[in-house]
């Protein structure tokens, strides 16, 4: 089942074309790894999907409902704020720099949105938070503050915080890039477990091992375009495009 449909997204920053016509279809339960050189527009793509950036052209639909659509003149029209709120609630996002709320404890970080956004009763929100902390292996850090955690622990809290809103799609923007190498494993393990539960995931990553092992589909982006996509065996084993080959040659060396 198609959960996310993206057609011909174009995005400019001033005069810089950062996305040049991206098409993407994501099925429920799919894990998509997005790879490509720095500056190729990977983060911008994710940010456009969750409307942290607005697109200039193209359309984005979630579960068949338009967040932004293209009218007959080719202009992109965003749906009403109310409808967008509903659609965005279906997505969670995890950032490279965690962006935890430093003044709130681990538990408070996780229950913040359920309580303020969804009006979940406190007890229920705490129960959900405890289950999620169990799941990411941080039950003992419930009452710690972000400043007391390692990078890997912070990122696992950030994942739990996003999951607390019960999203259908999770977006990860280089979730392990800010971590010391020895800490990436614990985060990737949590993400792998999520994938095994058939969470729909879009993961921008430089972890080729993870992409190869966990993703159903790998997308190679360069210069604002999708250059090549396919299953991991195809893209890693037998890249067709010279730019994919060059990139993989560099990164896997």
């Amino acid at each position: 089942m198609n959960i996310l449909t993206v057609k011909n997204i174009c995005k400019k920053f001033n005069n810089l074309e950062v996305l040049r016509g991206i098409d993407l279809e994501v099925n429920k339960g799919e894990v998509i790894a997005i790879i490509g050189p720095s500056g190729s527009g990977k983060s911008t793509l994710l940010r456009c999907l969750i409307r942290l950036e607005t697109i200039d052209k193209g359309s984005v639909a979630i579960e068949g409902k338009p967040m932004v659509y293209q009218d007959s003149n080719g202009d992109s029209i965003y749906s009403s704020e109310k409808d967008i709120r509903i659609l965005r609630k279906k997505m969670g996002m995890v950032f490279q720099n965690f962006n935890l709320f430093p003044h709130k404890s681990v538990l408070e970080n996780i229950i913040e949105a359920p309580i303020t956004v969804s009006n979940t009763p406190l007890i229920e929100a705490e129960n959900i938070a405890d289950q999620l902390l169990e799941k990411v292996g941080l039950a003992d850090k419930r009452d710690s503050y972000p400043c007391e955690l390692s990078g890997g622990q912070k990122q696992r809290v950030a994942i739990a915080r996003a999951l607390a809103m019960n999203p259908d799609i999770m977006l990860f923007d280089e979730p392990t890039s800010a971590l010391d190498p020895e800490l990436t494993g614990e985060v990737l393990k949590v993400m792998k477990a999520l994938a095994e539960e058939h969470m729909t995931m879009l993961v921008v990553t430089h972890e080729m091992g993870f992409a190869r092992e966990v993703a159903n589909k790998v997308i190679f982006m360069d210069n604002g375009e999708i250059i090549e996509q396919g299953n991991p065996q195809e893209v890693f084993g037998n890249p067709k495009h010279p730019r994919t080959k060059a990139f993989l040659g560099q990164i896997l060396r």
Partner: peptide, 14 residues
Amino acid sequence: IDRGQYESADVLGL
């Protein structure tokens, strides 16, 4: 305050 604070609050729906 870092822009990331606004962004993470925003994507959580605040």
